[in-house]
Amino acid sequence: MSKARYGAEPSPVTRWIILGFVGAVFIVPILALVEFSLRLGQTGQHGLVHYAAIFDPANASTYSVLFQGIGNSLVICAITVLIVLLVLLPTMILVELKFPKYRRVLEFICIIPITIPSIVLVVGFVPVYSVVASIFGSNPWTLAFAVGVIVLPYAYRPIAANLAALDVVILSEASRSLGAGWFSLIVRVLLPNLRRGIFASCFITIAVVLGEYTIASFLSQNTFQTALLLLQHTDPYVAVIFALFALVFVFVLLILIGRLGTSRRNRRSA
């Protein structure tokens, strides 16, 4: 601990005072969500009535929008993950193996969606989707094309970090000198090594898709987030319950990503 006196690290007391204070402030809105979901109208009493109401068949019509929205969001999740796996991932591997000069270009393209706000892209998506709708019909799953673009920066980073940690050229030369073709190089050597990056990238994709609101609302599709906002007017309690569920679900998902990351680090240091 004496090291902390002249280094940059805070003393444990300082650390826990800061983290405790900030943590306490930041937990308040979450606790308010929990408290709100337990309220029994304006009576000032609390109970689990609203949680039970979700499973009450009498309310099925009220919540059908929400369940439909969740269903749509899950379909969009699946297609967006497929876009990441079948379009982004092969391109990244190909660039790494065959066109390393263009790595910066690919990175630049994948970062662009951070620079262009979704609300700006939406202005352009409206005309694009009038064409998309004439080809595929105005189906919710078509949103995946637009959401896939929003996801690019988030999906790119974990895979890129994983690729950078591997020596792809050495691995490919080694496997090819052992007689492997391109197919077994990718399937039996590269993909297993990239597993963690790919998983992390899929998880973060799921999180971003479930949280996406802007595009869905402007393209008038019913997804989880737009349904939450609609439901908030008719049954704010259940909207809040699902918001809580979603926050906790994504929190756990991200803890899992974190765990994947740490086991990788441990392995490297070992």
Binding site: L33, A207, G211, L228, A246, L247
Partner: peptide, 13 residues
Amino acid sequence: QFGGVMLAFAFIA
């Protein structure tokens, strides 16, 4: 990165 609508709910509550 995830919040958006749900954070708005939290602040309304």
